[in-house]
Design a binder for these strands. Sequence first.
DNA 1: CTGCATTTTGACCAACTAGTCAAGTTTTTG
DNA 2: CAAAAACTTGACTAGTTGGTCAAAATGCAG
Lengths: 217, 217
Amino acid sequence: MAKAAKQKTNGGPERTTRIQEINRRLILDAALDVFSTYGFRGTTIDQIADKAGMSKPNLLYYFPRKQNIYVTLLEETLTEWLAPLADIDPAGDPIEQLRKYITLKIKMSESHPEASRLFANEVLHGAPAISDFLAKHLKPLVDEKAVVIRRWVGEGKLAPVDPYHLIFMIWATTQHYADFDVQVRAIMGSQVGRPGFREQTAQAVLSIILNGIRPRD
Amino acid sequence: MAKAAKQKTNGGPERTTRIQEINRRLILDAALDVFSTYGFRGTTIDQIADKAGMSKPNLLYYFPRKQNIYVTLLEETLTEWLAPLADIDPAGDPIEQLRKYITLKIKMSESHPEASRLFANEVLHGAPAISDFLAKHLKPLVDEKAVVIRRWVGEGKLAPVDPYHLIFMIWATTQHYADFDVQVRAIMGSQVGRPGFREQTAQAVLSIILNGIRPRD
DNA sequence: CTGCATTTTGACCAACTAGTCAAGTTTTTG
DNA sequence: CAAAAACTTGACTAGTTGGTCAAAATGCAG
């Protein structure tokens, strides 16, 4: 145990240099593409390295294990993914807040489908890498918003609806267009690519859900 | 080219015997479990063979390629999965027909979550093994039912809603409980296991969707 | 420019896994 | 019951892939 400070204990560098920043980003971007398409087991380090434009050992210099890339990617993605839910304003108009939330999620689903698929794949396979994250970050946030929704229902501003199932329905519906993109395309064909398709989707989803939870008299 | 009839051209037997029926079933059941948990690449033939209680070469005697098991399983599953949609009666009451459809899909999602996950995983990864099936069987069926729904809307029996997006929403929502089971459990905890949970889910989903598409005056 | 730290890579290895094969065992059939 | 057909498996192979290593190339501080 000599000259502790500078000694690297494993493959990862300690202080971040300019090159490190660039290369880590390069790797993560490439990895998102590949992991989201082929899943964790289906992805080879060579594929990622190729796509990132570097040799495999060089990639392993930045992320000593394949797992490391994967987990880093998932946590980065999830944090960003959760933000819109946190932004639901308890003091705002219920229908308006939920409209905003749903609209945002559909936009994210269209602009970052790979992130959605990466996450879907992980959960589908039992979330081995992120069950902690779900328990520590996702659950509390959802619980918090469930209280808000329940209050809205109590105040008669929403039809009586279970907040958890409402949230699941919003997630399911919005992410469906990213996760099941191939199926959507198989059925709707060229329409999917057309400009305005996202707006049409948003319109349809919003119409059903918002009418479904609007208070009835 | 001699004694054509009895000659086997590859590993697969030609006429089905009693033993074949038993063992194919054994293999497919085991494979569904494993594939739905680990995906195609993540599954090894040994795993399936172990679970099916036979040696790997023996398994390969019935399904000469890993792919064969996978595709057989997917097509078997999909056919069964599509039946309820085909059963929607154009002459029936719209709300009643859709209630029946949604209820059935939620039931299937609960009783065969592995099948749902197997399919979700395949589509998520671009449906390489079943894009033909989607084009040849799924699309025509959906198109057919879309016409029916559109007529219902025209007759004022449903609120104006795009039939395709309605169908996607139903799929997304009902399958969510199978595909994202881990996430649902992470958030709702022990409630998920409790008796009556499926009824509660069905109630919530039906309430939102059906009210969302009920004609408004 | 000099010397040290960081970065990069070709060559390699060990583990794993889809699929083969030949030799055996069991079942069916005439 | 004998022979053929169907079934079963241990041992093996070839290809793939996660990860190592030592040496070379590059960047950088003084």
